[in-house]
Design a protein around this nucleic acid. Structure first.
Lengths: 353, 353
DNA sequence: GTTGGCAGACCCCGGGGCCGAGTGCCAGCG
DNA sequence: CGCTGGCACTCGGCCCCGGGGTCTGCCAAC
């Protein structure tokens, strides 16, 4: 009770060495077994030279401090979010981390990805298989990428397909309703105009550029250009919301920690691409994974889960991560997320540079 | 015991009217409530002018015939797969079906789909929301579609992006590793050659055509064409496996029929795109939905689920459907699947014709 | 500060008893 | 011959209870 609202780090420093060892024992044993850990067990695991009674006193103190918690009187202790947090912070401070998987991963990731989307899809698969958690991968925003090619293909007299190819290998497409029949020659002219004026610019500027063209164009082209401008309206990049790759939902069902309705709630959230995209975009910018444990999570309904995410950088940055019960092996998950993000980044730059 | 292996239809005709009414009552009540139905309840629901005892005799006969089943002695009856099948067959014979949803559906489906993929994605969403089941949508095979545009965009000195646009609005892309640096001029020449020789052909023939070009090309182009031919190898259409859209997994978790491990098993299957694609491709070619109930299902692990699927036709055909517990309201599910398939087909042809 | 001892709390589990729902069977009736 | 009411029986679900086991908190002593 001496200083209840100390900042995280200060609070941490208050723990003497023995408390830390006890806490660590509880966390690791609980992660491994899923059962509450009692004082006797702690003595064995932490190899302490004191009796169980002493440990009980310490555990009582740790509970007072909010690091552990007992489900009911006369049960062992379980780490709280804060308990996990303590060691995650410790992990982050260590410069070297335990190694994630290496060789096979490269193999599987690089192994014949056909294009960027395919690569991201595979990444998601690899990530969920390695961690046995739900994996999330979001494509990088395209704003900063440069337009490499813009094409207009007529599908029918009244509709055409607009293609935008970025130098990152991403392709955006839009079906354009031309409102009235147009000739191939018209399409060709527009194609040329577009290519001339917007190629090489940033994807984020494309819409404005085309809009500009509409205003200054001869009237017969204008009727054709207008719907194209429209089609590129609404941020081209918001489209990214569809490009959230989710894998490993099945692992959630295997997790006995979750009640049936929690499970259903989380699964529902996983289908809201918007929410997921927002969630992942709130990932820190450093090269350490961001970890959000239980209650730290902004989304109601993910309060019993943890999210470990990391950015990968290309022209602009995307992010990826895993979602699982708060009871997870943070050390190895962090290492894996990091390794996979690194590998993805590398493979992506190989592709487009 | 008179004729135990009668074909489905014959067996059906053996049921007298009262048995049919009883079976129908059991099916509909069980679908509605999820609880085993007893003789007393049947009398009420089916409005029969006989006593419960009589119904019990009939039920006993129905059980003997394999249409219903009791979970344990002294419980009510539950329909078997065969019991459901009886009424599904009856539904299929009726020429007019109960109407599926209409107006809002059109709204939501058409509502600003940006491209074909987006449309399929939305279809999947709509389907799962309307049925509260897992929805599956698979893109049409591309073999029969005609190539509208083939483009080669260099991303870096050594890599290029190959774009194939079909007249259905589908776009396939491949990152091509060129092995050695090439000039823009080379790329331009190849582009022209490709456009000249393969445009307008069927997607299924593209690879062979390019392969032919390689053999007959001057050597400096050959080094460039070879990797392109490679990139289009492996059926272009197999790619479709990634284009299985799955929605509404959360609804499975809400279903108390499933045990925890069944749930997990089904969810795992839903992540195997290959399996799903195969499953959906086994859909009948008529304009009636195909229904596979429980054990009728070819995939081990889906033996407690039913799959209702239907083809939609474009140039070639794709299919879509829903997956859920055998205990589902087949009448309304069939109607909905049918309506959505019809609507999708319509919207697709609007787009590309 | 540490320790062993000890009482108390509580979960888990199996058994027993009761209730209710639903069945199968049977004798009798039209 | 089909239908009916009556009846015995079966069985799951529920509650209660008591024993075994575990872990805690407290305390007195070292």
């Amino acid at each position: 009770m001496a200083g209840p609202d100390l900042a995280r780090d200060d609070a941490r420093d208050l723990l003497d060495d023995r408390k830390v060892r006890i806490l660590r024992a509880i966390v690791s044993e609980y992660v491994a077994t899923g059962e509450p850990i009692g004082s006797k067990r702690v003595v064995e695991v932490a190899k302490l030279d004191v009796s169980a009674a002493t440990v009980r006193n310490e555990m009582s103190a740790l509970e007072e401090l909010g690091y552990i918690h007992q489900p009911h009187t006369s049960a062992g202790r379980i780490p709280t979010d804060r308990g996990y947090r303590y060691f995650v912070d410790e992990l982050s401070e260590m410069t070297k981390m335990p190694d994630g998987p290496r060789a096979e991963l490269v193999q599987e990731l690089l192994g014949g990805a056909r294009d960027v989307e395919d690569l991201l899809f595979r990444t998601s698969t690899v990530l969920s298989q390695l961690t046995r958690l739900v994996s999330l991968v979001i494509a990088p925003a395209m704003d900063a990428a440069r337009l490499k090619l813009i094409e207009l293909v007529s599908l029918s007299p009244q509709t055409a397909l607009l293609l935008l190819v970025a130098d990152t290998g991403r392709v955006e497409k839009r079906v354009v309703d031309l409102r009235e029949p147009v000739t191939d020659a018209d399409v060709e002219r527009v194609r040329t105009v577009l290519m001339e004026h917007v190629r090489g610019h940033r994807m984020g500027e494309v819409h404005d550029l085309i809009q500009g063209l509409v205003d200054g164009a001869p009237s017969e082209l204008r009727t054709l250009l207008a719907p194209i401008a429209e089609a590129t309206a609404g941020n081209l990049t918001e489209e990214a919301i569809h490009h959230v790759y989710v894998g490993g939902q099945a692992s959630l069902a295997g997790e006995p920690t979750f009640e049936r309705d929690q499970l259903s709630q989380v699964l529902e959230l996983l289908e809201e691409r918007m929410t997921l995209a927002r969630l992942l975009s709130e990932t820190g910018d450093d090269d350490q994974p961001t970890v959000r444990i239980g209650e730290e999570n902004p989304v109601e309904g993910l309060r019993t889960t943890s999210l470990v995410s990391q950015r990968y950088r290309l022209v602009s940055s995307g992010s990826l991560g895993v979602l699982g019960p708060t009871r997870m092996d943070y050390a190895s998950v962090l290492a894996t997320v990091r390794a996979v993000a690194g590998q993805l980044q590398e493979t992506l730059t190989d592709l487009s540079e």
